[in-house]
């Protein structure tokens, strides 16, 4: 048994550099269960780096990151549902094969929920991924991730490259499948669309958190929407 941590994600002086380029610099962060957290920042601010560190794809240069009290590894990956910012599925596979594969590897995967969401998308289960449009493929990937009953969801730019209708679908899927014991971390630079869905935000700038807080508190204090606040913080 690992020591019990009240935080699903905890970072202490987390630093990661790539050569001379420092992507994250001394980040301290704690995420408790039951929140939808926005990780907001322009491109290159370290959002993807933080997500990759959280699922153990890369290792910290200094400091540490803990998932539910333990270092990222096979054990933590069974609790973390990660949606990368790329198309990461084998194009030759059929939609149903991929659903079965997820069901095979992740004990927390809700197979029925996944198939029902796929049907909602009007995607043919027997279709190979290579025959689907880019937007549909992104939705299928999101369905796979959100059909897990994970503790921590890491969604890297889930609404990045899709049209407004798809954005609506994606946001609905995230709320509809979120459950109160888990936490969702959504990275994006399109704040306007996700703002009402978030209850907590982190503004990331050049590898540091420059502002953090509850969405309504920030709106109350500044009298501005987060979108407007974001433009102010990141003004060039």
């Amino acid at each position: 048994m690992s020591e019990h941590s009240p935080y699903l994600l905890e970072a202490r002086s987390l630093t990661r550099s790539f050569g001379r380029n420092v992507a994250l610099s001394g980040l301290d962060l704690r995420l408790a269960p039951g929140h939808i957290v926005g990780l907001l920042g322009p491109n290159g601010s370290g959002k993807t780096t933080l997500m990759k560190l959280a699922c153990g794809l890369i290792k910290p240069t200094a400091g540490e990151i803990l998932i539910d009290g333990e270092k990222p590894g096979p054990e933590s990956r069974s609790k973390v549902a990660y949606l990368p910012d790329t198309s990461y599925l084998n194009d030759n596979m059929r939609v149903s094969d991929i659903v079965e594969m997820y069901a095979d590897f992740y004990a927390d995967f809700d197979r029925e929920a996944a198939f029902s969401l796929i049907r909602d998308l009007k995607v043919d289960e027997k279709a190979r991924l290579s025959t689907l449009s880019k937007g549909t493929r992104e939705k299928v990937q999101l369905v796979l991730v959100m059909s897990r009953r994970a503790k921590l969801y890491l969604l890297d730019e889930p609404i990045g490259g899709v049209d407004p209708a798809a954005r609506e679908y994606i946001i609905n899927t995230i709320i509809g499948n979120y459950h109160p014991e888990s936490t969702v971390l959504i990275s994006t630079h399109l704040i306007y669309d996700v703002e009402p869905v978030l209850d907590h935000v982190l503004f990331l700038k050049e590898g540091r958190i420059v502002m953090e807080g509850g969405v309504d508190e920030l709106r109350e204090q500044s009298g501005k929407s987060l979108d407007a606040l974001f433009r102010e913080v990141f003004r060039c």
């Binding site: 039951g34 929140h35 939808i36 609506e168 946001i171 609905n172 709320i175 509809g176 979120y178 109160p180 009402p196 869905v197 978030l198 209850d199 969405v215 309504d216």
Partner: peptide, 14 residues
């Protein structure tokens, strides 16, 4: 709460 949050597209905690 969850249904209403989904309908309004807001955070369930809010």
């Amino acid at each position: 709460v969850r249904e209403l949050a989904a309908e309004a597209r807001v955070n369930p905690n809010t």
